[in-house]
Amino acid sequence: MRGPARQVKVEFLKRWARGLQIYRNRKKNMSLIETKNAIKLSADVAMASTKLHTSQWSRALISSASSSNDTNNTVVHHILGTDKADHVKHYSENLKKSSSRICTVNSKNMVRSKKVLRKSCALVRARKAGVPHRVLAATIARRIVKRTQVLKSLVPGGKSMDDVSILKEALDYILSLQVQVNIMRRVVEMSELA
């Protein structure tokens, strides 16, 4: 179990170093926030690029990162290599299409969810008064739906996933975030010590 995880770590470090190098060569005077954003973005993209073939969240993250800014785009290209970046661009176009579709769906859902909210508040009030078990189950189910929506907003690209795949992607995302946090912490400690 130690082997592949270590390989992922080394890969992540190499890619992150590549991304940071671009920033170092490109800009000499950056503000603190800019530096922080650059470090964070390069780390995120490096982590996502290690999991590019196995997960959806990484592709969503990279596509959103490359579409936001020009320098970010070059960073993404440099970290991934051009062919992969093009591949991801295709994906991002698909994602935009699907997300626009989802936006329309969401706008419909928004109206409904207000109603649901009002209803659920009514249900909570009713629960205090002592209501049969069936109604409580309904409120719990609604809570679960809400939590799932929050989780979808947290995982990159999660808005276009269904309930089963969002859990899988969340698993993958949590694992890679743990790796990322681990390595970044080590780097911080090393630079603290030196």
């Binding site: 170093a17 922080k36 946090v181 970044m184 630079s191």
Partner: peptide
């Protein structure tokens, strides 16, 4: 944590050459 760690790295070395050495 990722946010915070990148912030910390940014404060520690504003030019990011230190990372590469590491």
């Amino acid at each position: 944590q990722v946010e915070f760690l990148s912030m910390k790295l940014a404060t520690i070395n504003s030019r990011m050459d230190f990372n590469i050495d590491n």
